[in-house]
């Protein structure tokens, strides 16, 4: 077990690499109940959230979700999250470490007519991820709803007798669903899934991290922080710069026009070694950037990572050197994802 945002979290159940491979090959089940759930409802909910969140909220209707960010006036990231439009409210799934920050920020800024509720303590969340997810879930689902959802869609069903919100989302790069249910209902779903034919492998935080790194997905606290904007992090696609009515849009528009000093790059080592967060990126022998995440890719069996580097060095196929505890290791930037897989089926 390991500590994360005040939670005792399973780092791994068997071994992290076996769990990682199970998710890529068949499926795995993650307990991500530490994640936060904020609800915003009322006649002004949409207008209020449109001003707070970077992505174009008008692009989603009931039953759909989108990746988006909550930013400060200077563009610094308060959190990255998924917002879902439900028939009568919006649901924001936020990082565990940022529940209070998101709640307080929104509570201060949402207009009259938008009600904010923090459901985090009463909502559990399980992520069933991998190409075998549907076969594992089918025997437990009251209706076929989950199997007709498109990527990022959300709906309601009963799983193993427990009412759930089911979203076709995840953080692994594999197809799958995230189930949100009443806190007390989660053990019944977990146990029922473990008993089906083609049961998922229980999977912990280490596999979750190696899976997301192979996809080049940023993690708050590593790649994302209040000191970096979505533009620097390569998340312009999740920012409605043209619409431009959200907090932080001014700074981001300027950054898009003028460029930023640094950019987040995904890289792989071209020799043996494992990069780790905090290590220097050397350009011309001098520290010019910082590794934000690094690991050994279980799929590729090479060291991979992400780093903020000078923008000129962030383009794919740029040679870098990573200072791995005093040993210079050759690396090359790459396109996301680092493995050939897609969560879209």
């Amino acid at each position: 077990m390991g500590g994360f945002a005040g939670w005792d979290m399973p780092l791994y159940y068997s071994t992290a690499s076996a769990e990682h491979r199970a998710v890529r090959a068949t499926c795995g089940l993650f307990d991500v109940s530490h994640m936060g759930q904020l609800e915003v409802s009322g006649p002004a909910a949409r207008e209020g959230l449109s001003r707070a969140l970077t992505n174009d909220l008008s692009a989603i209707g009931p039953g759909q979700g989108q990746y988006t960010l909550l930013c400060q006036d200077d563009g610094g990231v308060i959190d990255d999250l998924i917002v879902y439009a439900l028939p009568d409210r919006y649901l924001l799934v936020v990082n565990a470490s940022n529940i209070a920050a998101c709640r307080d920020w929104l509570a201060e800024r949402l207009p009259d007519g938008a009600e904010l509720a923090d459901r985090s303590p009463e909502v559990a969340m399980l992520a069933l991820q991998g190409p075998g997810w549907a076969d594992a879930l089918r025997p437990l689902a009251a209706t076929p709803l989950a199997f007709s959802l498109d990527y990022f869609d959300i709906g309601e069903d009963v799983i193993a007798g427990v009412p759930c919100l089911i979203a076709r989302t995840g953080y692994t790069g594999e197809p799958g669903v995230e189930l949100m249910c009443p806190w007390d209902g989660a053990p019944a779903i977990w146990d029922a899934l473990m008993a089906v034919e083609g049961a998922p492998a229980p999977a912990g935080l280490v596999a979750r991290d190696t899976l997301r790194l192979e996809m080049g997905y940023p993690l708050y606290g590593q790649e994302l922080s209040r000191e970096r904007t979505p533009i620097e992090a390569g998340l312009k696609w999740a920012c409605d710069i043209a619409g431009g009515g959200f907090t932080g849009a001014e700074v981001m528009r300027r950054q898009v026009e003028e460029g930023t000093a640094d950019r987040l790059a995904v890289f792989r080592l071209t020799e043996p070694g494992i990069p780790r967060a905090g290590q220097d990126v050397l350009i011309g022998g001098r520290p010019a950037g910082t590794v934000t995440s690094g690991t050994l890719s279980p799929s590729l069996d090479v060291g991979i990572g992400m780093a903020y580097v000078p923008s000129a060095s962030a383009a794919p196929d740029t040679d870098l050197v990573i200072d791995v505890r005093g040993k210079p290791k050759a690396a090359r930037t790459a396109r996301r994802p680092l493995v050939a897989t897609s969560p879209k089926e």
Partner: peptide, 8 residues
């Protein structure tokens, strides 16, 4: 140490 993944 846990699962060993690299030897230098």
């Amino acid at each position: 140490l846990g699962e060993v993944v690299y030897y230098d």
